[in-house]
Computed example of a mutant assay.
Amino acid sequence: MSRKLAAFCAAAATAVAIVIPLSASTAQAADCVTAWVSSQVYTGGQTASHNGRNWSAKWWTQGETPGAAAVWADQGACGGGTTPPPATCTATDWVAGRNYRAGDVVRYTDGRHYIAEHDNPGYDPTISTWYWNPHTCNGGTTTTTTTSPPAPGGFVVSEAQFNQMFPNRNPFYTYSGLTAAMSAYPGFAKTGSDTVRRQEAAAFLANTSHETGGLVHIVEQNQNNYPHYCDSTQPYGCPAGQAAYYGRGPIQLSWNFNYKAAGDALGLPLLTNPWLVQQDASVAWKTALWYWNTQNGPGTMTAHSAMVNSRGFGETIRSINGALECNGGNPAQVQSRVTTYQRFAQILGVSPGGNLYC
């Protein structure tokens, strides 16, 4: 590997609000708070005004428009505005692969209604929680809108989505271990637009899934390879033993020089104690993030750079195991990674983008 670190409703559009002049005795609407700014980060409880109404953030958000995203709670009209009457709708049956626009309401196969929060090419409403939210449709089946809060620190992958991606994972690979490890590389899955962040998270997790059989294996399974990962030409040698630097963790950290470099970067004694990677979930995730964010491997850029600079998922394969898989080396393995990435991208409700192969 180099080494194997691997129609808001259709009818609603025609609804007309009836404005009744306020009498002198009618209470005035609240003052508008500071206007919402798309680039600003808001955390739970913070407020902003938009389109004549005040809104309160339920949890961490950035770039999600008040009134169009479930993260915002409506606090009422401000600055003399009035509250429009509730809209009614006639939902159409959801069709996979049909293009939907933000505000479209559909009836899913279970009889429940969902509203599109963002334009999408027909993603499944029960999977793509970024693009769809449960919706109460007047005159139809009603459901409670419940969107899971984002992960700690604003990670774009919720724990429920993580579990959906890895239904058979080894208990060693904890979600909390991953989110704790992310503090070492704060740019991971937090650089660029929300789409880019979700694509990077999906790409990283897809590659770790491939390397570990779905986050099942903690260590490399072929023990015959273990003695091969000691480069004795390095001045520091292999103090933990010649057969101690086999693949471990989500991207299967291998070779003494990689353990040395990762340990130096993370402030961990991995050269002398490589077993930490298979004993501590946070350490294991940190080594994977170290490789993802800092190492080119056999490629020309880091996997992180490939995703945030629109070079595509294929370049992440090249950075992790391109010498063996890319340029026709092992198309079946490349396809396995791509298929997993596409599935994870769908779970996160984002297009996988282009340049998927290497």
Rank of each mutant, 00 (worst) to 15 (best):
4 K>H: 07
9 C>H: 12
14 T>F: 09
21 P>V: 05
22 L>Y: 04
27 A>D: 08
34 T>K: 04
39 S>W: 03
41 V>P: 07
44 G>E: 05
46 Q>T: 03
50 H>Q: 15
53 R>D: 09
64 E>T: 06
69 A>E: 15
75 Q>H: 08
76 G>Y: 04
82 T>W: 06
87 A>Y: 08
97 G>S: 02
99 N>G: 14
103 G>P: 12
112 R>G: 09
113 H>K: 06
114 Y>L: 05
115 I>Q: 00
117 E>S: 13
118 H>N: 14
119 D>W: 12
119 D>A: 15
119 D>Y: 13
120 N>F: 03
128 S>D: 14
130 W>D: 07
136 T>Q: 12
137 C>M: 10
144 T>F: 01
148 S>L: 14
149 P>H: 01
156 V>M: 03
160 A>D: 13
161 Q>C: 10
168 N>K: 06
175 Y>M: 06
183 S>P: 05
194 D>Q: 14
197 R>D: 00
199 Q>P: 09
202 A>M: 11
203 A>P: 09
204 F>C: 15
204 F>E: 07
208 T>C: 15
214 G>K: 07
216 V>G: 05
220 E>L: 13
220 E>K: 05
220 E>R: 08
226 Y>E: 07
226 Y>T: 02
233 T>M: 00
235 P>L: 03
236 Y>S: 14
242 Q>E: 12
246 Y>H: 14
255 W>F: 02
255 W>H: 11
269 P>C: 06
270 L>H: 01
274 P>H: 10
287 T>S: 15
301 M>P: 09
302 T>V: 09
303 A>Q: 07
319 S>P: 11
326 C>G: 02
327 N>W: 00
329 G>K: 10
330 N>K: 07
332 A>T: 11
339 T>K: 08
347 I>N: 04
354 G>A: 15
355 N>K: 12
357 Y>S: 14
